[in-house]
Design a protein around this nucleic acid. Sequence first.
RNA 1: GCGCCUGUAGCUCAAUUGGAUAGAGCAACGGAUUUCUAAUCCGUAGGUUACAGGUUCGAUUCCUGUCAGGCGCACCA
Length: 538
Amino acid sequence: MIDKFVKDLNELVKQIFSIEIDLKDYRMVSFTEHGDVSTNISFELAKKLKKNPYEIAEGLSKNLFKEYGYNSYVTKPGFINIFFPDKVFVEECKKIVKTFYGKKDFNKKKVNIEFISANPTGPLVLVNLRAGIAGMMLAKVMEYSGFYVEKENYINDAGNQIYNLGASVLYHISSEKPEKFPENGYKGWYIKEIAKMFEKTFGNLNYTQKNIKKASEFAKEYILNWQKKSLKNFSIDFNNWVFESDIKEKYLDETLKILTDKNLTYLQDKALYLKTTTMGDDKDRVIIKSNGEHTYFLPDIAYHYFKIKRGFDKLIDILGPDHHGYIPRLTASIKMLKKDDVDFDVIIAQLVTILKNGQKYEMSKRTGEFITLDELSEEIDPDVLKFTILSRKLSQPFNFDIEKAKEESMENPVYYVQYSYARLSSLFDKFNLNKNELNFSFEKFENKDLRNIAKKLFEFPYIVYNVASSYEIQKIPNYLVELSSLIHQFYYNYRIIDDDRDETIKRITILYAAREIIKNGLSLMGITLKERMFKNEV
RNA sequence: GCGCCUGUAGCUCAAUUGGAUAGAGCAACGGAUUUCUAAUCCGUAGGUUACAGGUUCGAUUCCUGUCAGGCGCACCA
């Protein structure tokens, strides 16, 4: 409906003013409480034609009715507010109930979305959860918008930190060991636990290079399994786990050859540099050190080469804020390697600070002071965590108070949304609803509030597309709260099931569609649907 | 010193990407249920959008400067 209106409006402007306006360049049509949709196109035209926007708007409004039959009126500086006929909304509700509403057909584009990618040197923490939950939702949103999506987790299992991990583990059980704990070693409580288990299987081993390697392997496996288990509590999963060790073995040489063949590298002070400045970086980067070892950067380039090689049209990396300085060189390397058009988007998920009763809770992986995902999922309803995290713009750092989350949990917005779903569910049960009875052909709403609910449903696909292109995940939870609010108000203010069966069916029809939208929205967020909820049962 | 992110109600955050009266939750206060779930609804109070300029029909949003906080600036990963 909106698409058609935009087309008609564009046609009309062309006809009257002989001007073509690229509708995608700016927001021209938006949802509004002043009408069904509104347009600010007269301001844009006023600029170009040097005429009064209000007069332009009035002319357009008249012609919108004359040429296309749209009802509209003009307000103050020059907005045009348009009303659609009631039956349009009823027809949309039919689509909501009978089809995957707004789900786009497969557009033949492949997206790779990489997130979490935590080092296997310790348990996962809240920042990882933020990336994980956002990544899951974005993947679903992209799918809804017509993309083929693969979720990927990259494991740095080949660097020095793995050596340090092994050394830290072995240190605890070796009888012959150096006096000092390994420099850059890991001190978490879990290191000792892993050490105990390692000792159970392999016995008391000496502190040798060979045994450190053995301990590294053991600890890495253990921690990866632990991470997988933690993620399962939040239903976070991946299509692929990619290991740095694999990448090094299979794609490192190939990547290096391509870069040198393209003459994008040079030797200086015995180190090999990549000319990232040719692609916008502020300095060239070393990829092979003067001692012959490569830097972390090279396998990372190879990993992204591996993504390109698999034919993805769009690569999305969700990274932590400490990696923002890394973006220009990564972007540069991708430009060097890509064949055709490959989009590369980096989303920085900002820090989450944990508070306990208003006090900042300092965390550090090296010292072992932190709260794990497991503790969080034990203490706080995962649905609450998901909703809270997804309600925040990813680019915004935020504070999360654990004690408050527990205290306020009954008043949490997630329950507000879930409750609207549950209320409607039990209502339909009571009515003994038969889906075939729903009425999608009535012409007019007798009740303005019911119409408002129908109108709100209409926005859902546009919200989802918006999220798919802007990655602003918070728009979906915010929308669901707004919709739920309309539902709760309606529920309170009106008797839904009454003696007038025809009117009852009309109400039920719209509310049934509304419940479908809540279902779709919560599913995108990975949040549980509840058919029934009672406060005193919790 | 340079770069990125941020600064909105007492607290935690939104604001349709430059739109119309800056909105929610929590906390505070007052009200609503003989009715399909009160995990709900209605009302009151709370704001110079860090500060100062600029751009224009219109700025929380864009530009410049200042202040404050976080994070980066390796032949570490």
